[in-house]
Every structure is written in C-alpha cells, then in structure tokens.
Design a protein around this nucleic acid. Structure first.
Length: 424
DNA sequence: AATAGAAACAACCGCAAACGT
DNA sequence: CACGTTTGCGGTTGTTTCTAT
C-alpha cells in the first residue's frame, strides 16, 4: 500500500505548517471533529493530505498535549517502559499523559540514548554496555551502527513476542494475542516477574483494554505504587482514574488535588472530541498561562440522547494541575530547552494563539465552563450552524441525526465508565 | 561575528493492521 | 472472503536552533 492515496494528488503542501494552516485545522476539528482524516483537508480548506493533518493534530494541535520539557520522572518512566515494550512508542506514550509517541521517540533518540550510554547502559538491551558487548559474537559483521539498529529491532521483536499473561499484555495495550515465544532478556523477566507477582494472571483469552478501567501497573524497580491511576483504554487517549492515589512517580504532576485536567476521548464524535478546549489569551497572563484545564474551572459536558433526555458530567479541577512548576514552558531539565529557547517557543505560541483567538470564534460544543475568569471569554462564543439541539439550560449540541445521538450517548457512557461515574 | 557541529524538533515515508463494502 | 481504503505506527530524514570554537 504505502503512500496514502491522497498524497498522489497534486499541489499538496509539505513541510512545516504555517500558523494559518494550524488555525484552519484547529478550527475545523474543534467545530466538526476530524471524522475521516482523508476528508479533513478538503473540508478545512487545506492543501495537505489527511495523513499530514492527522499527524499535525496528534503531535502538535491536540489540546491535551502537555508540551514543555520532560521531567525526570517522565524520563525514568520512559526508560522503564522501553525496557519492557521496546520501541513501541505509542504504547509508551499511552502511559505518559500529554506526551506523543513522536515526542517520546525524539527524546529517546536524541537524549535518553546518549544518557544511558554515558551511564554505561546499552539503550537497546538495557544491560550494562560491557555485558551487551560480550553477548555479541566476535567477528560479527555488524558495524556498531548496524548493530544498534539490529539490536533495537530485535529488542522490539523480543518484547512483542515474549509470552505475557494476557492481562499483563493488555496492561500495556499490547494487542497481539499470538503466542510466539522467544527467550526474554533478564530485563523482561525482571519486569514480568514483577507483574506476575503483582497481578492476577489467571485470565485467559484476550480482553479489551477497557477492562483495565481500574488502571494500574507496577514497576518495582522504581517503587511505583500499583495504583498509579493511569489506564490504557481503547476509547480514551488519556484516562485518569480519580479514585486511585498518585504514585510517587507522578505525584508532582498529578497531585491529589488534581482531577481530570483534560479528558480527550479518541472517539469520532465531535461533541466528545472537544469536551474541554480552553486556550489562554496569553502566556504572560498568570491567570491564563496554562493551556488547558489548569485554572480553577468547572466544565459541564452535556448531551441529549435520542429519547430527549439529557445528561451531563461535571469535570472539575481545583487548579493544581501544572502547579508548582510541574507545567513549565521553560525547560527545567538538561534535556529540555533552555529558558531562552522555551521563551521563544512560548512567544511563538502566544502569537499563534493570539492570532487564532482574534480571528476565530472558539467553540465548545456541548460544553459550558463555569469559571469567573473564563466565563467572559466563553460568553462570546456562538453556537455554529450545526448546533441544532438545545437543552433547557441553554446548552447546544451538534446532533444531526439519531444515529449520532446514539453514538454520543454511547460514547458518553464509555467516558462515564472510565471516570467511574454514571449518568441518569 | 562567522562558522561548523550538535542537539532538538517537526514532518515525511512506508508498512501493516483495521475497517468498510 | 476479497479487495480497496483508512488509520496508526515506527523509522528516518529534514529543518531549525543552540553552542562551542
């Protein structure tokens, strides 16, 4: 298959995205959701292929992205996850809210690899370099560079083929259910043993990841608590279990006051794709410096089912997410940007968002925000032409037909289950 | 100040799985 | 079940920015 069909079309732009293109894509997805990616560029008025739009959205425009420098805890987690998952960046990213696989991949290739080598650890095998070197047969035709590549591939292959108890495979979102066996490296065994001793592995058969609503995983080497509060759910890009306590690892980012700063189900319903979408007017404004959900706000996402009833879910934040510099535009690690660079980035973001906000009307489909700071801004929002349904409280919904309504109802139930809430 | 190399970041490419018909 | 399309992933490359000389 290879090249995406839309890429064959002529006059498609490539390369870096301009602020105008970002604006178009952001506005389109905010208003309508992405739906079929291949139709997005046409509908959004972009000379890009759908694939490029999708990538741009996932890696840059998505509102739940954390951005900023990686914390030491995040780096540690990436290393530990890589030891188990290999180069499965998407699965690693699933354990790091607000981070993309691309971001993690870049960090790994540009920074973590080097750090590990400096510490005498083979980044591919996670073993001491001397041991890793001994494993390789003498007279191997591999060059060092080639060896690195092959080693990485074999590592990923190993981790993908290692027999995992099904529950544990699901725990990491490993979808493959094939029973191919290879000898796991000691690193794998170490972690797998940890899982085996920590979790019930009696279940047979492949269960969907949604069974993991309780969300847990354990990394004994880092003294991570079992109930970390993160789970991989097929319907949610980010799923935070508010009932579970933050682990030591995540405590500085998800302290006990935080609750669902951003929920972004990866489902196709537009109403759910933009449940909470707030962009500060300026990073210079302390009250608006945090991109999404970092202020004291209360969001109420509502929907109407096809039988006319309406439901809602209250998503509250006490404003502690990102506090204590846990969300930092300036880099705070040696892997992060310098303050100067981050400031430049921040200013660029400012300019881009200011331009966006000046030229567009934001939309919060089916979402109302109750916050003294945000209300004035949100009060300016106008419902779009597709918002054809309203409830008694004035909320409007983009519900074009009964099928959509049913889908929304279903999606919301999924969302509710992920948060342990029920709707009446 | 100019330049080269390194680092960081963004985006593309190709493949394969998933999905729809 | 076959086939075409779409989506997601991981590897790789290109570009920008930073830093040392």
């Amino acid at each position: 298959m290879g090249r995406h069909s839309c890429c064959y079309k002529q006059k498609l732009r490539k390369g870096l995205w301009s602020p105008e293109e970002d604006e178009k894509l952001l506005r389109h997805i905010t208003m309508y959701g992405h739906g079929c990616w291949s139709s997005v560029p046409k509908l959004a008025g972009l000379q890009r292929c759908g694939k490029s739009c999708r990538l741009r959205w996932i890696n840059y425009l998505r509102p739940d992205l954390k951005r900023g420098a990686f914390s030491q805890q995040e780096e540690s987690l990436i290393i530990e996850l890589h030891a188990v998952l290999g180069n499965r960046w998407s699965q690693i990213a699933a354990q790091l809210p607000g981070r993309t696989d691309n971001e993690i991949k870049n960090l790994w290739n540009s920074c973590i690899k080097k750090k590990l080598r400096q510490k005498g650890i083979d980044p591919n095998t996670h073993k001491p370099l001397s041991a890793a070197e001994n494993i390789e047969k003498p007279n191997s035709p591999m060059t060092i560079k080639n060896n690195e590549k092959v080693s990485a591939e074999s590592q990923a292959e190993k981790s993908s083929k290692t027999i995992l108890p099904v529950d544990q495979r699901n725990l990491f979102g490993v979808s493959s259910c094939s029973n191919i066996t290879t000898t796991p490296s000691p690193t794998h065994e170490f972690f797998l043993d940890s899982f085996i001793t920590s979790h019930d592995s009696s279940t047979t058969g492949c269960r969907p990841n949604s069974d993991l609503a309780a969300g847990y995983f354990s990394f004994q080497p880092l003294n991570y608590e079992p109930n970390i509060g993160l789970s991989v759910n097929p319907n949610t890009t980010l799923c935070f279990n508010p009932d579970s306590r933050s682990s030591e690892m995540m405590s500085d980012q998800f302290n006990s006051d935080m609750m669902l700063p951003t929920i972004f189900p990866s489902i196709s319903s537009p109403i759910l794709q933009t449940p909470i979408h707030i962009k500060p007017l300026s990073h210079n404004d302390p009250s608006a410096v945090l991109p999404f959900g970092a202020q004291n706000w209360e969001a109420t996402s509502s929907f109407s089912s096809n039988n006319g009833s309406s439901s809602s879910v209250d998503l509250q934040s006490n404003g502690s997410f990102f506090e204590n510099n846990t969300y930092s535009w300036p880099g705070d690690t040696d892997c992060g940007k310098s303050n100067k660079q981050a400031q430049i980035h921040s200013n660029a973001e400012d300019a881009k968002w200011s331009q966006y906000l000046e030229s567009t009307t934001p939309f919060l489909l089916g979402t109302t925000i109750q916050n003294p700071t945000l209300e004035p801004m949100l009060s300016e929002m106008k419902p779009e032409k597709h918002l054809i349904t309203t409830d008694g409280s004035g909320n409007s919904f983009w519900l074009q037909n009964q099928n959509q309504q049913q889908t929304y109802a279903k999606d919301f139930q999924t969302l509710a289950m992920a948060f342990g809430q029920t709707f009446n």
